[in-house]
Nucleic acid binder design. Structure first.
Length: 425
RNA sequence: GUGGGUAUAGUUCAGUGGCAGAACGCCAGACUGUGGCUCUGGAUGUCGUGGGUUCGACCCCCACUACCCACCCCA
């Protein structure tokens, strides 16, 4: 048997109803913040991710699906392609490629779609997973660097989660500083670690070399007291970054979006600067982040574009749906009417009736003339149809159809032009 | 990439070195144009794959694969 490949899965009804609910709510909420949709390709040039996400990150160095495409001629070298592991880089690529800074004002984008990372699957983590994200990008003159943009984006997320009925989320907020701040802080951190790292877990010993920032993220209980003694990035921010971070918090407080500052929050993508954040949810097990994001003031330049600061986030849709299904059980959407053709030749009038009703927006499901009535009614009620419409010789001859309410058991005989209105009320 | 667990019917799971099981679901009949309830019957299947031990393996051993959970990383 051919099966879905490792880390991928089929989404079936009724779960797809929850996905549709999420996506339509997202479109509604994002619309009032005046974001518009962007769709970028699933396949991109490998270099796009090497230069934005960072060559040294796990995402690029270990987790990417990439391959060399065939050249046009057999002798020609092919281009290295990759399935996108995230969507911010693609959006920024499109922004630069189409010179979207020429459009008036600050650009507000949102996207939803599959992303691909070749990781070991586990709860809330798949090789093909779905992200819903938004990005705000523009030249400095459009106000793209303003802390108000950060706060607005976070407020939009809070509104979305509330509207979806997700309770118990927490917003963790930090500032990772400018690129220059990060370099200075990394030096300091490395120095500080030199004295204590031998007493820490093996992972931290490795991180101290490869990516010292991640030591702050360590969850091993024995390491916690040591981590408390390490320098905080908050103390190494330049004045502008400090002011920015302060203003973001001030606005969030004023619009009553609860958050807490987590000085140890760091993120695994190179392009993040200043504001970094995560929304987490307790019910998810180890993969508890449902949203992650931050500011990326230098990303455009690193992709060869003009200065175009921005900020964005990505929601893990798979994880979000998981939290939702613990609260609300999604129900499959049944038909309004199940048409039961009864006896030879009845498929023909049944098809005509079905077409007529569907034109009036009635959800119709049709049986087959070979079914015995008992079987038709049974199928109708098992699949949740609200009404059964019997189409037999008697009905066709008289023009009066038997319409049975499957909830109450009540049955009426009505003419064909009364069916739609009866069923809808 | 590392560690642990699991693999038997459509689903959830029992099971024993000697005929492959239950519940639910599915199909049919009882009831020829009236569902839900009930009763009766049926099909469920390469017991994950490949080797080995054995008179005999779904069971014991080895390898592989897949899934789940965790690490790592991230959404």
């Amino acid at each position: 048997m051919i099966k879905a490949v490792r880390g991928t899965r089929d989404l079936l009804s009724p779960e797809t109803e929850t996905w549709n609910f999420v996506e339509s709510t997202v479109r509604e909420v994002f619309r009032v913040y005046n974001f518009s949709e962007i769709r970028t390709p699933v396949i991109e040039d490998l270099q796009l991710f090497q230069r934005s996400v960072g060559e040294e990150t796990d995402m690029v160095s270990k987790e990417m699906f990439s391959w060399e495409d065939r050249g046009r001629a057999a002798s020609e070298k092919g281009q290295w392609l990759a399935l996108r592991p995230e969507n911010t880089a693609g959006v920024m690529r499109a922004y630069i490629e189409h010179k979207l800074w020429e459009r008036p004002g600050l650009q507000h984008f949102y996207y939803m779609g599959p992303q691909f990372r070749r990781e070991r699957p586990q709860k809330g983590r798949y090789r093909q997973f779905y992200q819903i994200g938004a990005e705000v990008i523009g030249p400095s003159a459009t106000g793209s660097e303003s802390p108000a943009v950060d706060a607005e984006l976070l407020e939009m997320l809070a509104t979305l989660l509330d509207r979806l009925g997700i309770h118990g989320w927490t917003l963790e907020l930090n500032s990772v500083g400018s690129a220059a701040d990060r370099i200075r802080f990394n030096e300091t951190l490395r120095t500080a670690l030199r004295g204590v790292v031998s007493k820490m877990c093996v992972d931290c010993q490795r991180r101290a070399e490869t990516n010292p920032l991640r030591v702050l993220d360590c969850k091993v209980p024995q390491d916690q007291p040591i981590i408390e003694t390490l320098p905080r990035i908050g103390d190494y921010l330049d004045e502008a970054s400090q002011a920015h971070f302060g203003e973001v918090q001030k606005i969030l407080n004023s619009v009553e979006v609860p958050f807490h500052v987590n000085h140890r929050l760091v993120r695994g993508i190179d392009y993040y600067t200043r504001t970094a954040f995560e929304f987490t949810h307790g019910s998810l097990g180890a993969q508890n982040a449902i949203v992650g994001g931050g500011r990326y003031d230098g990303l455009s330049e690193s992709l060869g574009g003009p200065k175009a600061p921005g900020i964005g986030f990505a929601i893990g849709e798979d994880r979000l749906v998981m939290t939702l299904q613990e609260n609300t059980g999604a129900a499959a959407r049944p038909a309004d009417v199940y048409i039961a053709p009864l006896g030879p030749g009845m498929n023909v009038p049944a098809a005509g009736l079905a077409r007529e009703l569907r034109r009036q927006n009635v959800v119709v499901s049709v049986g087959d003339e070979t079914f015995r009535l008992k079987k038709s009614l049974e199928t109708a009620s098992k699949t949740g149809a609200r009404y059964a419409l019997i189409v037999g010789e008697n009905e066709v001859n008289s023009g009066q159809f038997a319409l049975k309410n499957l909830g109450t058991g009540e049955q009426v005989s009505i003419s064909r032009d009364q069916i739609a209105s009866t069923v809808k009320t």
